[in-house]
C-alpha cells in the first residue's frame, strides 16, 4: 500500500542510498567511472570519457571490451534494481554500502551477446537496460548504449542471467 503522505525527501533518500549501495559495492564499476542517474525507477548508466578506456589510439575509439563491460554492468544493475524495488519500497530491505551483508546478491551472467553498431568516440557514453523477462531463476535483459544521440546506438546487447537463490 502506497503511503501518499510519506515525505518526499525520505522517499528520495531511501531510493538513492539503495542505488548507491548497489553501485559502489563493485570495484570494477568504480574503476571504469560508471555512475547511474535515477528518475523514479528509470536508470541511465553514465560512463564519462577517460583516456584509459581507449582501445584504438589512432582513430581514437573506445575499447570494444569497455563497451561490452559498460553494457553488462548496466544490465546487471537494472536487473537487481528492478527485482529489489518492491522490497526496498516496503522497507523489507535497506541496502547500505557500509554493511556488505545488507547488499542484495547480484545476478550471474550466463551469456552475453554484444552487437557493435558504431565505434565509440572519445566522449561520455550512456546506457539503459530493459528487463525483457524476469523469472524466479532466469532473466533476459536487453541493453542499449549511445553517446551524443539517443537514436544512434554505438552498441546493443542481450544477456541471460541466473538470479541469486535464497
Amino acid at each position: 500500500m502506497i503511503n501518499r503522505n510519506e515525505p518526499l525527501d525520505q522517499i528520495k533518500s531511501r531510493r538513492d542510498s539503495a542505488l548507491n549501495a548497489l553501485v559502489t559495492g563493485v570495484p570494477y564499476m568504480n574503476w571504469l567511472g560508471i555512475t547511474f542517474d535515477r528518475r523514479g525507477d528509470e536508470l541511465t548508466a553514465v560512463m564519462p570519457y577517460h583516456q584509459k578506456l581507449i582501445g584504438n589510439p589512432s582513430l581514437p575509439a573506445l575499447h570494444g571490451g569497455v563497451t561490452a563491460a559498460f553494457l553488462e554492468v548496466t544490465a546487471i544493475i537494472e536487473l537487481s534494481w528492478s527485482v529489489m524495488w518492491e522490497d526496498m519500497e516496503s522497507g523489507r530491505i535497506s541496502p547500505d554500502a557500509a554493511v556488505p551483508d545488507s547488499l542484495p546478491r547480484l545476478p550471474k551472467t550466463i551469456d552475453f551477446t554484444v552487437d557493435y553498431l558504431r565505434s565509440g568516440l572519445p566522449r561520455d557514453s550512456y546506457a539503459r537496460a530493459r528487463v525483457v523477462r524476469s523469472g524466479r531463476r532466469y532473466a533476459s535483459v536487453h541493453v542499449e548504449a549511445w553517446q551524443d544521440n539517443r537514436s544512434r546506438l554505438i552498441a546493443q546487447a542481450t544477456g541471460h542471467f541466473l538470479m541469486p537463490q535464497g
Binding site: 570495484p27 570494477y28 570494444g64 561490452a68 563491460a69 553488462e72
Partner: peptide
Amino acid sequence: EYLVGDPRTGVIHGGVISTLMDT
C-alpha cells in the same frame, strides 16, 4: 583488486573477461 565484480567473493567482473576475449 580493482577488477572485482563481486566484493563478497573477489571474483573478477565478467566485463573484464569480455575485454580480454575481444582483444
